[in-house]
């Protein structure tokens, strides 16, 4: 695959994760990727972010200087293959994001009651959302037989507008294959499948009897969407030939197609501490409430 990057001027975490996933797919099929004419600034940045693993750069400036460990400032595009990596990866990414925010006091003492610092309150909604997105990406694909499916994730904080952007891209089966046959899927299209997946309690394996390995309540994606909304942001979701954001739904341009699910989460950093998980869950009917023993 020959890529002319001469007109590429910006890549956000969603774009970087998609690029890395696409290059991986080509290499997996014994293909090669050559990227031509990438401008020097972007070339250095994308190399630093590990977008070009196994890619030949032609006419592009090499990365300048020594590579430093900047785990407290950024997280390179990271590929996950194992479900056991989910918790650690979500934590590392959020730690990197919080580290990017210059106003944060990393030596802040935790609140005596909660044990939380301001950094913790800032990071937790993103960590929560990432856990849910990675869980969905790695479990649904394997159930559908995509045993080698993996996930690429990347993140960036933009101080100029206070936005946090996170990209989570998988090469699994996509929403349509996951939900085919589900009563909530009214049309067998990728767009209908995305919209169905955004409804609470819609999942391929909500019932234990349907698939016996594990279950899923079907609220992870809806909770993630609400986290983004409460923090002044939104989700963009692409799967198959469809792309959806809360302001628009459409098909991908020029017949483009993504085998799997690609999600961009965008939110305002300053609103993250306002997120309360208890306000995001689907309502429980009063008659269904269960007596529990809290101590």
């Amino acid at each position: 695959m020959e890529v002319d990057a001469s007109r590429l001027v910006f890549a956000d975490p969603f774009g970087m994760a998609l690029l890395a996933a696409t290059f991986h797919k080509v290499r997996e099929q014994n293909g090669f990727v050559r990227v031509h004419h990438l401008n020097a600034k972007l070339s250095g940045y994308l190399q630093r972010m590990d977008v070009f693993e196994g890619v030949e750069l032609v006419g592009c400036a090499p990365m300048q200087g020594q590579r430093h460990d900047r785990a407290d400032a950024l997280m390179e595009v990271t590929r996950l293959e194992q479900q056991s990596d989910i918790g650690n990866a979500a934590y590392r990414l959020t730690t990197a994001l919080v580290g990017q925010m210059p106003v944060m006091n990393r030596d802040e003492q935790p609140d005596e009651m909660s044990g939380y610092t301001e950094s913790d309150r800032l990071a937790e909604p993103i960590q929560y959302a990432l856990n849910e997105l990675l869980e969905n990406a790695l479990t649904h694909a394997r159930r559908a037989g995509y045993i080698n499916a993996c996930v690429w994730l990347s993140s960036q904080y933009y101080p100029s507008n206070g936005l946090i952007r996170v990209g989570v891209v998988d090469n699994g089966c996509g929403f349509l294959a996951t939900l085919r046959g589900h009563t909530a899927l009214h049309q067998e299209t990728h767009l209908a499948a995305i919209l169905a997946a955004l409804q609470p309690r819609v999942s391929c394996n909500r019932d234990l009897g349907l698939r016996s390995d594990s279950v899923n309540q079907g609220v992870g994606l809806t909770t993630t969407r609400r986290i983004a909304e409460r923090a002044g942001g939104r989700l963009y979701i692409a799967s198959g030939d469809a792309i959806h954001s809360d302001s628009a739904s459409s098909h991908l341009a020029n017949g483009a197609y993504w085998q799997g699910v690609a999600i961009a989460l965008e939110c305002k950093r300053q609103k993250l501490p306002e997120v309360r998980f208890r306000d995001l869950l689907p309502p429980v009917e009063p008659q269904l409430a269960v007596r529990l023993r809290f101590q």
Partner: peptide
Amino acid sequence: AHGHLVGSRMAAA
């Protein structure tokens, strides 16, 4: 927990 969060199904199983 990773930080203050327990998150994945794999960890809960």
